[in-house]
Design a protein around this nucleic acid. Sequence first.
DNA 1: TGCGAAGCGGATGATGCTCATCCGCTTCGG
DNA 2: CCGAAGCGGATGAGCATCATCCGCTTCGCA
Lengths: 218, 218
Amino acid sequence: MPRPDTAKPGALRRDAERNRERVVRAARELFAERGLSAGFNEVAHRAGVGVGTVYRRFADKDELIRAALEEPLHELIEVAQRAVEASRAWDGLELLLDSITQLLVDNLGLRDVALGGGAWDLGVDEVERVAEVMAALLERAAVEGDLREGVQGDDVVMVLWLVTDLAQHSGQVRPGLHRRYLQVLLDGLRSGPGRAPLVEGFTEEQAQSICRRWAGAP
Amino acid sequence: MPRPDTAKPGALRRDAERNRERVVRAARELFAERGLSAGFNEVAHRAGVGVGTVYRRFADKDELIRAALEEPLHELIEVAQRAVEASRAWDGLELLLDSITQLLVDNLGLRDVALGGGAWDLGVDEVERVAEVMAALLERAAVEGDLREGVQGDDVVMVLWLVTDLAQHSGQVRPGLHRRYLQVLLDGLRSGPGRAPLVEGFTEEQAQSICRRWAGAP
DNA sequence: TGCGAAGCGGATGATGCTCATCCGCTTCGG
DNA sequence: CCGAAGCGGATGAGCATCATCCGCTTCGCA
């Protein structure tokens, strides 16, 4: 539902620009704390601005989300870059997952787009790129014998959901608790003596569908 | 808000009794499928009965919940009884968690009361009893050297939350997927070569608080 | 079989949210 | 100085859920 005066060609008045800035900052904070379900009214309130101002500047939620998540999405890429450099793939994987988890926990909105399986579709190829890095790392880890038999790529996505979901519930009470279970899960995904292969896998379509539900697909 | 004609002393008319039965059955099904958040109207509809009938028979939600969960709660106890009999504590623990998980996944309402940390307080000492069995098993497993260092009792509760939460999101798409991650988590909780002790524990109060939030405390 | 009591259904109003619009007033800046 | 740009937030529409009430039906005793 685009409003007539949204996305102007000319520049904004000085005060309007300042307000826009405030709105983006408020949205970033709010989305980070509570995920993309935060509404326009709330963003406006946190920005110390009328609701009208928010609707005036952003045609729809996607536009606001994109503005609010630009920066965190870049961090995601950087983190991936650092992880591929590890000499042993499993170490890189642990580093990557630890970093991603931290990023997603610190910004639940980012989680919604990164793990949402297109639930909030804005075209984010950053996510694609990170996924590729992860897939490569996984393959290398398998070759190096560190990956438990039967583990598939989407297992990692599920692990991220599990852990970030825990963080969402525990964050206020006991910050950082999620790292404990990330460790447990990763250790369970690693190969080792007496480890039976993982059975009963699942398809990529199933994974995507689950993710969309988890993100609260609109 | 008790209604005047609730909880009668005398017996119900034959048709009324039949309707009550229907309501309890509907509630059991609904709570099982969607957790305790299901409302009276919905229960009534599923029971093929007017809303009034439900309100007439049950003073409040607690009363309905108790009626609907009586049977599943007994199953919980039985399962615990079977688990203590295992010769090796870890095996009993695996059996117990597998069974409990299945029970809670098949009945999300049961999960809400069992893991809710008193969020839906009805006095359910069944849960207490199962907790005791689990604690004993955990202690024995530690003595037998199967438990990873640093694991504490409430870790198991968190694992149950994680796994049942996954089940709630994936159940429709890929039933049984939760067992995969239960296995991974349990393997991660077991002692083994190269397993660093778990660090950064948490208190019982924190665990309880997290559980209440997770259950959507009212 | 008749009849009073018991039970029934579901429309309904209360309540509480979120969303998005509109218009009288304020502020900017040429 | 003044017209355009921008602002705020009250507001009403839309949507859930909850719990009540009352005209009608059904039961089961006598």
